[in-house]
Design a protein around this nucleic acid. Sequence first.
DNA 1: CGGAGGGGATGCTAGTCGGT
DNA 2: ACCGACTAGCATCCCCTCCG
Length: 348
Amino acid sequence: MPAPRTEVTEIVTGLAMLGFPSLRDALDARPPELRNVEPAHWDRLDEVFAEGSMDAEFRGAWSNGLAFLGAAAGLRGRRPYLIEWKGPHRTPGYDTVPADLRIDHVYLVSCKYLSKILMNVSPAYLFDRLLVDRRGPVPDWYLEVAPDAYRAFYRTVRDHLGAGLPAEVDDLVKDQRIVLKERLAGPWPGKLAGPYLEFCAAAADASAARWRAGLADPAAQEEMLWRLLRLSGAPYFVLGTAPDDVLRLRIYTPWDWRQEFSLGSFEVTGDAAAGQPVVKWRALVTPRGDGRELPVEGHVEIRWSHGRFRRMPEAKVYLDTPHYDVPGYSPLDADDRLSRGLQLDLSL
DNA sequence: CGGAGGGGATGCTAGTCGGT
DNA sequence: ACCGACTAGCATCCCCTCCG
């Protein structure tokens, strides 16, 4: 069962597009146009709504759905005949568009909690395979790119913790990893903090070098930026909520992007100052017919999954540029301003 | 507030095993 | 040798909290 918050956000966003006079009416109707929502989901929604503990989420999702119903680039006031909720299941195959709702078979909508996290993937998939082929060898990334630094750091840890651990990090087995994770919970002990930072710097630099190696030509850089920003072959919409903010974006396709922008540069560097292995990325984008360069930047944290030394490292990709300043992310209300005549009265 | 880290969920994959 | 069914393990995806 997904977190109630996710369910509230996604289902209520869809509900609001169906034009009910109020959320209460919509919840009571349990409209059949909203597919894949089971009775248990409706029951839980009723329960959470009655409790009132998630009023902010309800309000945000409701206003997002209404905005999409009225938006020029969205439904322009046309009540959909079908809203498919992706539901608690992960979509099979390669998930290019992170869509939680599909409206009338064509409009793809992703309902996000406002977040700077773009994706969380395996390091080899990002740095070696450039987000192209998910399937591939699954190395322990730290051993793959910074074996000497990783082994040296492990030996320092082992010497600090004492007996019961193998001589080399390569020989750790599952139970030992669990023990390591538990004994290393919390801040690094003073004697390990310095060596850890050294290892972080080595892993970050090596990861950046690996990434750069695949990004030699401009075409590869441009495609990399598109994939990082999750541009997809089909346009889609992001309707985000936060306690007191909303984010409503239309996400360009590469085709849209090319018509408005060109890529000046894409740079990747290890971040020695961070408290974990971090690789920074930065693109300079030039709008066509206008000389001002727009920076887009973010960073990638490389981190153990499920605790220190426990599972394979994964790569968490962050966007540091505000969403509204990203070339290729177009605010829904900007589209509305372009076609003012289509604005509808949405007061309830 | 956001960087650092935690951990549940899901479904892929590499095993095993019996049958052909 | 190959195939399909089945399954345990775990890589990856996703969302969460904690704390300075």
